[in-house]
Every structure is written in C-alpha cells, then in structure tokens.
Simulated scan of single mutants.
Amino acid sequence: MTPLQSSQAPYITKPSARFMLTHPAHWIAQGFGSGLSPILPGTFGTLLGWLSYVVFTLRWPDLFTPLHWAGIIVAGFLLGVWSCSKTGRDLGISDHGSMVWDEIIAFWLVLIFVMPAGFWTQFCAFILFRVFDMAKPAPVGYVDKHLKGGFGVMADDIIAAFYTLLSFAVWRAI
C-alpha cells in the first residue's frame, strides 16, 4: 500500500466508524463495518460475504437466484470501483486494508458457482479464496501492485476468485 499523491487526503492508518459514516462510499468500501476489524479485516469481509450470501439465498430463494446474484455481482463490482476509489482517496492509501468490498463481491462470485453445497465445501472455498487473496500468486500480485484506484482494488480479488473456482474444477475432475 502506498500513499496516494494527494495533498488533500489525510493518511489514516486506522479508520474509525466515524470516518466510515462520513460518506456512503466509505460505508460500502469498508464492508458495512466488517473492514474495521483490528485483525484480518479481509477475512472478516469475506465472512460477511459468505454469511450474507447464505442468509439472502435461504431467506429469499426466488429473489436470490444464481442469475440474480450474477447481476448483483456485476453491479457490486461497479459500485466497488467507485466506492473504493473514493475511500482510498479519502484515506490517502489507494488499497487500504479496511476496504473489504472487493472480498465480499469476489466471494459472492465464488459462491454462485460452488452452491448449493454443504458447510465443509463452503468452508474449503472460503479457505482457498483467502489463501489466493493473501498469497497473491501471479497475476493477482501483478494486478495488486500495478493497477491502482478502485478498479485495481476490485480486480485482484476477482482473479483470486477465479483461482478458487479453478481449484474446485480441478478437484471435482479428479
């Protein structure tokens, strides 16, 4: 993470709930508060993505179908580009650790292909996604380092989701 080239933006290392509530973009980018966790905010964002997917799909199965989830993910990706750009500028760090909307959207993408599945399969998807997101194998690491702004924040997690799905495809083919 590098500070943005902006004399207007403060360099905030630990954003607070107060900061998050100053603009809707912050609230979204910081995963409705899950990104404010003092430890492993990306993991907490992914957990929120997992929980929300399961709850919404079970509660309203006619509304939250895989096709509808796909539309939500596309819209959420675009919303994430905007909200992460704005929040990164306001924090003074283009990909601040508290911004977890990218994990939420990417894990929803994983789940539309993995579900329906039992708890342990979902858990394996969660672990694999977190490993790929944190380890940043090529090209995830390249995208993370070279694409800045909201698009870069969102894109590297989509690639991590692709690696997770590729792992599941290989596992199921064996």
Rank of each mutant, 00 (worst) to 15 (best):
29 A>F: 13
30 Q>K: 08
32 F>T: 12
32 F>D: 09
32 F>M: 15
34 S>T: 12
35 G>C: 11
36 L>D: 01
37 S>P: 06
38 P>Y: 02
38 P>V: 00
40 L>I: 15
40 L>A: 14
41 P>A: 07
42 G>L: 06
42 G>K: 01
42 G>S: 07
44 F>W: 15
48 L>K: 00
49 G>V: 00
50 W>S: 03
50 W>D: 02
51 L>M: 11
51 L>C: 09
51 L>V: 15
53 Y>K: 06
53 Y>M: 00
55 V>A: 14
56 F>P: 02
56 F>H: 04
56 F>A: 12
57 T>C: 02
59 R>D: 03
59 R>L: 14
60 W>G: 01
60 W>R: 00
60 W>N: 04
60 W>D: 06
61 P>N: 12
61 P>R: 06
62 D>Y: 09
62 D>T: 11
63 L>K: 10
66 P>Y: 10
66 P>W: 11
67 L>R: 10
67 L>S: 12
68 H>Q: 09
69 W>Q: 06
69 W>I: 00
70 A>Q: 12
70 A>K: 06
71 G>V: 09
72 I>P: 01
72 I>L: 15
72 I>A: 09
73 I>A: 05
73 I>L: 08
74 V>Q: 11
75 A>M: 12
75 A>Q: 08
75 A>I: 15
78 L>F: 15
78 L>H: 10
78 L>R: 07
78 L>Q: 09
79 L>G: 15
82 W>R: 02
82 W>V: 14
83 S>L: 09
83 S>K: 08
84 C>W: 14
84 C>F: 14
85 S>W: 01
85 S>G: 08
88 G>E: 09
89 R>I: 02
89 R>A: 11
90 D>S: 12
90 D>M: 14
90 D>K: 09
91 L>C: 07
91 L>G: 01
92 G>L: 14
92 G>M: 13
94 S>K: 00
94 S>E: 08
94 S>Y: 06
96 H>M: 10
96 H>Q: 07
97 G>P: 03
97 G>N: 02
97 G>V: 07
97 G>F: 03
100 V>D: 03
102 D>S: 06
103 E>T: 01
105 I>K: 07
105 I>F: 05
105 I>M: 14
105 I>A: 12
106 A>T: 10
108 W>F: 08
110 V>T: 10
110 V>H: 12
110 V>G: 07
110 V>N: 05
110 V>S: 07
112 I>Q: 14
113 F>I: 00
113 F>C: 04
115 M>T: 13
116 P>Q: 05
117 A>I: 01
119 F>I: 05
121 T>Q: 12
121 T>R: 13
123 F>C: 02
123 F>Q: 04
126 F>Y: 11
126 F>S: 05
126 F>Q: 03
126 F>W: 10
127 I>N: 06
127 I>S: 04
128 L>R: 09
129 F>W: 05
131 V>M: 15
132 F>A: 10
133 D>W: 10
133 D>I: 03
133 D>S: 05
134 M>V: 15
134 M>D: 09
134 M>E: 06
136 K>R: 08
137 P>W: 06
137 P>S: 12
137 P>K: 13
